[in-house]
Design a protein around this nucleic acid. Structure first.
Length: 710
RNA sequence: CGCGGGGUGGAGCAGUAGGUAGCUCGCCGGGCUCAUAACCCGGAGGUCGCAGGUUCGAGUCCAGCCCCCGCGUCCA
């Protein structure tokens, strides 16, 4: 491994078709921001890049829905997202856009090089084309009947009913999800990247961290779920993947290439290259147009991608292949992907509006940016999914931020003002004071400083290991240490009996406050500035500010020197009243009921169509869960004249106990079908609301079993 | 279904070379009063998903089963 001289850090490009929510922060942006801020504070050379991903079909679809143009959509969200990042204290060296001219050029040049190197294979295939919408359809945008189980709503890539993997052309009676029309097959030619060709170097790179026979990185520093997913892909066999698409909105395939009309670059080719074009733009703005090269092409640079887990294979397999195939680029040293953050027990969902939007948070709860950051870091889904709840948000604020760190700082500042009129007292290095570990145990000033430096080292290790939760805990541990120091030395008592001791203790306390300002800066940048304000010191230098604190402490120098005048105390954090939290919970719950979407009325059915169906009243007399199926219950329904076994997809909403004895309506003449090995003889009628929640359609209680519904 | 991750005191989590089960929050008792009922000390509370195997000894290794979450090629 080569020695690191500089860092190139990227955060996943947010897709410009919606605002940012807390899940985005937790996944890719906060961890990167902490990492970058810390490295800088320690004097490292870092470039931190991000930008809006503005290409692809989803944006054109969104534009159509809103009756506007794709350009207006991306302009709107690029602006909103960029502002949101600033407000929450996340600062990129460059926040760029993939709709920019520079990006188009950069990604096209990349494509040209790969093409010239002979990395692509051109292949023609038949794909479904929606004549009405005038576009080729991605697999997910085609539905039809599954050829294996006759399920009528199978997707073009798989059937959710029987789980088989499909290709769109296998579907019986395919329909476009865009227009509902029957798509037609048209032949289309694309440039494919035969990924299997690269397995030879990719596997040792991922599994052993070796590249070209040399050590590239330590694989056990990669997260287990990242390695797991990569291996799963390798073991499954890499396949050729189309690097171009038939789209209307995106980066054109270089026009001079034959057959390029109407073709755009594949999103996962174009988007990661956005990191590179953003760095180029940064370099231009620095006045050194070539400065980007050393970050992307020099072996002494450490490339790190912060992403969410849904992007793992693109950053660990596809993009590295592209970089290596190009030939001039370095590969990532790590891809610390985070898992997902859930919200109040549900998966965060943009489309269902189940989210905390960051721009709304900043408006609703002004001045609480760092509280959000703190809570998100404390609960960061580093190894597994985690949970955001407003109640625990409040609790973390009240007991940890207010009770621990703000309280400690307030105690020191208050005491200094009270006893010394705000002038930092002198120290006596040799004076015995109680240490901060245990009551009635002697210690001295230097030992306490050493203890603080140990915590600083731990923070360093944790951050470099992408363990931000534990790093944050160490910050809090320093505050704990300060609280104990005061407790065990009781300056409020000793001020009368041992005034010299109090001077030394408070001088030490102020150094701890100064250190807290430094170590909290990567996590709580706004708070760090406030602490500096309390100490009557300028904001810490973003470059090297913490390194110089460390140096001073190691040299035995004070970071808040004797004789310096500090400011009056002020609360760093405040308790959050219940009503504020309740209002947020209410706001969230309101999204569950507001704006229901209604299915359009289906095409007209004749009376005959209706009478073909035989609906009967019945009662559920037995119910059990079907193993290995998350949605299915096996029900036994009493129809009076006979009993039926019915497999029903309601397990997400009802337990077997709850449905026992339930009176229901059954479609009794539905063709029997096997589901998970159980034959289902009919279908229990359910109503489904806008959130997909199911409810029984039942006769009046005690109506009786077996009667016809009409 | 395939693949990946996970199931540890009320909640959230550590436990990465097998040897008395830890942390944060909450709860209970005590102390303190400089501080935003904050701070400090002590305590209760765990069959480490289930039933096996290897071992003198397993949360930690092996095979099996159950449950939760995610991914399966385009919404963190």
């Amino acid at each position: 491994m080569t020695e690191t001289k500089r860092y190139m850090v990227t955060s996943a490009l947010p897709y410009a078709n919606g605002p940012l929510h807390i899940g985005h922060l937790a996944g890719a942006y906060l961890p990167a921001d902490i990492f970058v801020r810390y490295l800088r504070l320690m004097g490292e050379d870092v470039v931190f890049i991000c930008g809006s991903d503005e290409n692809g079909a989803a944006i054109t679809i969104r534009a159509k829905m809103e009756g506007t143009s794709p350009q207006e959509i991306v302009d709107k969200y690029d602006k909103l997202i960029g502002e949101t990042f600033k407000k929450i204290g996340i600062h990129f060296d460059k926040y760029h856009r993939t709709s920019s001219e520079l990006h188009h050029q950069t990604s096209q040049d990349f494509f040209r090089v790969l093409n010239k190197n002979g990395e692509f294979v051109k292949k023609t295939s038949e794909q479904y084309y929606d004549v009405e919408a005038q576009q080729f359809l991605a697999d997910r945008y085609i539905t039809g009947t599954c050829p294996k189980c006759n399920h009528e709503e199978a997707y073009g890539d798989q059937c959710e009913n029987c789980g088989s993997t499909l290709s769109p052309t296998e579907l019986i009676n395919p329909k476009s999800k865009l227009s509902g029309a029957t798509p037609e097959l048209r032949s289309t030619t694309h440039w494919y990247l035969p990924m299997d060709k690269y397995e030879e170097w990719l596997r040792p790179w991922i599994e052993d961290g070796t590249l070209n026979g040399e050590k590239h990185h330590e694989p056990n520093t990669w997260k287990s779920h990242v390695l797991g997913q990569c291996k799963s892909w390798l073991d499954g066999g890499l396949q050729a993947r189309a690097m171009t698409r038939d789209l209307s909105w995106g980066v054109d395939v270089p026009q001079e290439l034959e057959g390029s009309e109407g073709k755009k670059l594949y999103v996962w080719l174009d988007a990661p290259i956005g990191y590179i074009s953003a760095t180029k733009q940064w370099a231009i703005e620095q006045g050194e147009p070539d400065a980007w090269k050393k970050y992307w092409q020099d072996e002494n640079s450490e490339l790190v991608h912060f992403i969410g887990k849904d992007n793992i294979v693109f950053h660990c397999v596809i993009f590295p292949i592209i970089l290596k195939a190009h030939g001039d680029y370095i590969l990532p040293k790590n891809v610390p992907a985070n898992q997902f953050m859930n919200l109040e027990g549900r998966k965060i969902s943009t489309s269902n509006n189940w989210a905390i939007w960051v721009h709304e948070f900043v408006e609703d709860l002004p001045g609480m940016e760092d509280v959000l950051r703190y809570y998100m870091i404390k609960n960061m889904p580093e190894q597994k999914d985690s949970e955001f709840t407003w109640k625990s948000f409040q609790e973390a604020n009240d007991s940890e931020l207010v009770g621990n760190i703000a309280n400690f700082i307030n105690r020191v500042i208050t005491l200094t003002n009270k006893y010394y009129d705000g002038i930092v007292p002198e120290i006596d290095i040799n004076l015995a004071i109680n240490n901060s570990i245990e009551e009635n145990k002697p210690g001295n000033y230097s030992e306490e400083i050493e203890l603080m430096l140990k915590h600083l080292d731990k923070i360093d290790q944790f951050i470099k290991g992408y363990d931000f939760r534990n790093a944050l805990k160490e910050v809090m541990a320093i505050s704990d240490l300060g609280n104990r120091l005061l407790q065990f030395n009781e300056p409020w008592k000793k001020i009368k009996t041992e005034p010299e001791t109090v001077k030394t203790v408070l001088h030490l306390g102020l150094q701890i406050v100064g250190l807290l300002s430094g170590v909290s800066k990567p996590f709580l940048p706004f708070t760090s500035d406030k602490i500096q304000g309390l100490l009557n010191l300028p904001s810490l230098a973003e470059n090297g500010g913490l390194a110089s604190i460390k140096k001073s402490l190691m040299n035995g120098d004070s970071i808040v020197p004797s004789g310096h005048r500090i400011n009056k105390q002020q609360h760093l954090f405040s308790r959050i009243p219940d009503k504020v939290i309740d209002a947020q919970i209410e706001k969230l719950n309101a999204t569950l009921v507001s704006e229901p979407t209604y299915d359009p009325v289906k095409e007209t059915a004749t009376f005959d169509d209706f009478t073909k169906m035989d609906f009967r009243t019945g009662t559920i007399i037995e119910a059990e869960k079907i193993k290995k199926a998350k949605k299915l219950l096996k029900l036994t329904v009493d129809l009076g004249f006979e009993t039926r076994t019915v497999v029903s997809g309601i397990a997400e909403f009802y337990t077997p106990e709850e449905v026992l004895g339930k009176e229901v309506v059954l479609l009794a003449n539905l063709a029997p079908r096997k589901l998970r090995g159980v034959e289902s003889q009919g279908m229990v009628l359910m109503a489904e609301d806008a959130q997909g929640k199911l409810g029984f359609v039942s006769p009046e209680s005690g109506f009786g079993n077996g009667f016809t519904v009409r």
